[in-house]
Amino acid sequence: MKQKKWILPVIVLLAAILLPVVFHIGLSNMSILISVLLYMYWASSWNIMGGYTGLFSLGNGIYIGLGAYLTGCLFVYANLTPYAGMLVAALLTGVFSIIIGYPTFRLQSIFYSLATFALLGMMKIIFTNFQTIFGVNVGGSNGFKFSPGNDPLNMQFSSKMPYYYIVLGMLVAVLLVSHWITRSKRGFYFRAISANEGAAASLGVSVLSLKMQAQFISAFFSAMGGGFYCMFISYVDPSKMFGVELSINVMIMCVVGGANTLWGPVIGAGLIYTINRIVTMYAPSSLNGLATLISGLILMICVFFLPGGLIPFLADEREKRAMSRRKATLQKQSGGGGGIHE
């Protein structure tokens, strides 16, 4: 039974791997594909914290941005190859996430979200106003730039195809980790916290420690994505990385697809990115911000009509049909006799 579930994803993966080989994909389309995969990756990373564990962070950009800056700086100033740099940046960001997470975990969930949001804003202010941070020149509001090149050992490629495979690999990795969460005991505890924190605490596990773990993992992956992005475009723009739009868009993608599921973020990201892209392509340039408006509306509509996201909605429909079948059976049974014993 379980083997059957693997067939479809494996086929999709093979198709994805072979796609650029079989079809000749132009430069701009390649960028689009890479961006889609990256958003799927980021949505899945957020899912670990926000979807499975219920830590509704509105400031995911904090980790993405930090990962980007750290990877870039380690590359430019310490000559550390980004393949290692990404991991180091991710680790450092993970630790950072725990440090800022610790005081906020004890709060009512809404204040946790607010704190992450405020912190995101703080990061933006810091990185756009200060040219150097801790003695390192990070570029201030102009952003952190370096020259692209052809240096495969340092993750700089002239063609886009290698980037495609790297981000595809990252996506597979984060999905595997998400899958592990849905199956393992630790993952069960994560999801228990999301469902009912009080009950989870009574299971005898340290809720605080679990939250820190979930946050670390999520921040780790988000940061790695940031590092990748930095090497992909050779530029880190603080107002974009630490901007509200990136963080909220990633969250919307995950939530619309289905926040507590494996494929939800992937499908959500694909959907939202496509819609965004179409809108910005075909809308007249005078309508500035139409894409944002539409994203906001999509979120509102989704929350109201498809609670839990697209995938759970479809699963719920199946369960509803099963419930009504049961009700019908019960009614048939009690319809005949009934009445009060006297």
């Binding site: 509704f56 509105l58 809404i110 979200s113 909220i248 919307i252 939530v255 911000g289 139409l290 944002t292 408006l293 994203s295 906001g296 509306l297 999509i298 979120l299 509102m300 929350v303 109201f304 609670p307």
Partner: peptide, 15 residues
Amino acid sequence: DILLFTAGMSMALQA
């Protein structure tokens, strides 16, 4: 859900 809905509303209204 309410947080998400109103967050979407916030984005939409600003835009």
